[in-house]
C-alpha cells in the first residue's frame, strides 16, 4: 500500500481520539457476560456501545481526511499495531472489576475534559462529534465515579484493591497530558485545546472523585509510554488479534 501523499496531521489527531474510543470500547466489551451483576453487565456494555459509536464517527472522519477511500471498518480492523494511536492506558487489561472501574474513571474524566473543549474546535466536524460525545461521556463518568466511590469507601478489601489498581494504572496517565509536536500543532491551529488546559479540568474531576472515594492520589513519575505515537505495551497485540480475527480470517466478510 504505497501512498504518494502522507495524510495530513489532522488525520493522525483524529485517529488518536478514535482509537482511544475504539480500544477502550473493545476492552469494556470483554466484560459482557462476565460482570459481577446483570446491572453492571448492562452498564459496561452500554458504555462500550457508546464508545464504539464515537469511534465510528471519528474513524469515518479520519478516512475522509486521508482521502484514500478507506471506510471506518477498514481503518478499525485492518491496521497493524503500530498504526493504532490510542493512549497506552486504554489497552491495559481489565483486571478485576475495580481495576476496570479505575481505568474507566481516569479515561472518562480525560475524554470529558477533552470533548468539552473540542466542542469549540475550529474544525466543525470535530466540534459536532464532540458535542454529541460529551453528553454520553458525562453519563459514563457518573457511572464509573459512582462505583469508584462505593469501592474506595467500601470494605477494607475493596478499598485496598481500588488503591492498588490506581497505583498500577496511574503512571499511564502521564501520556495523556504529555504534549508532543502533533498536540501542539493542533492546539496552535485552534483544532484541539492545549493539554495543560485539559489537565487542569481532569485534575479537578479526579481529585473530587478520589477524595469522596477516600483513595490517595499516587505520585506522578516522569516516565511515560507513547501509545499515541504507535508505541504500545504488549497488551494491545492480543486485543487486536481478537478484535481483528474475523476480518483477517475472512477478508471482506459482511454481517
Amino acid at each position: 500500500m504505497s501512498q504518494s501523499h502522507a495524510p495530513p496531521p489532522l488525520y493522525r489527531y483524529v485517529l488518536r481520539l478514535g482509537d482511544l474510543a475504539l480500544v477502550l470500547g473493545q476492552r469494556l466489551s470483554e466484560w459482557v457476560g462476565h460482570a459481577p451483576a446483570l446491572e453492571e453487565d448492562l452498564g459496561l456494555a452500554n458504555t462500550a456501545l457508546d464508545l464504539v459509536g464515537q469511534a465510528r464517527l471519528l474513524l469515518a472522519y479520519a478516512g475522509e481526511i486521508e482521502g484514500g477511500g478507506r471506510s471506518e471498518d477498514e481503518i478499525a480492523f485492518l491496521r497493524e499495531q503500530g498504526q493504532y494511536l490510542n493512549p497506552t492506558l486504554a489497552e491495559q487489561p481489565n483486571g478485576d472489576f475495580g481495576e476496570t472501574i479505575v481505568r474507566q474513571v481516569l479515561l472518562d474524566a480525560f475524554q470529558l475534559a477533552l470533548y468539552e473543549r473540542l466542542t469549540s474546535s475550529r474544525d466543525d466536524r470535530l466540534a459536532a462529534i464532540a458535542e454529541k460525545a460529551v453528553k454520553e461521556t458525562r453519563y459514563h463518568l457518573r457511572y464509573s465515579a459512582g462505583w469508584l466511590v462505593r469501592l474506595g469507601d467500601g470494605t477494607e478489601e475493596s478499598h485496598a484493591r481500588a488503591q492498588r489498581a490506581l497505583e498500577r494504572l496511574w503512571p499511564y496517565t502521564v501520556e495523556l497530558f504529555e504534549a508532543d509536536a502533533l498536540d501542539r500543532q493542533m492546539a496552535e491551529q485552534g483544532i484541539a485545546p492545549s493539554l495543560e488546559e485539559v489537565r487542569s479540568a481532569w485534575d479537578r474531576h479526579i481529585d473530587e472523585v478520589l477524595a469522596e472515594a477516600t483513595l490517595g492520589r499516587p505520585q506522578d513519575r516522569p516516565f511515560t509510554w507513547f501509545g499515541k505515537r504507535g508505541e504500545h505495551s504488549e497488551h494491545l497485540g492480543y486485543l487486536l488479534a481478537e478484535m481483528q480475527y474475523l476480518q483477517r480470517a475472512y477478508p471482506g466478510a459482511r454481517w
Binding site: E39, G43, A45, R142, G146
Partner: peptide, 13 residues
Amino acid sequence: SISEFGSTPCKAL
C-alpha cells in the same frame, strides 16, 4: 435506581 443503564442505550433501570 437499580442501574444508570438498561436494555437499550436510551433507558435506565
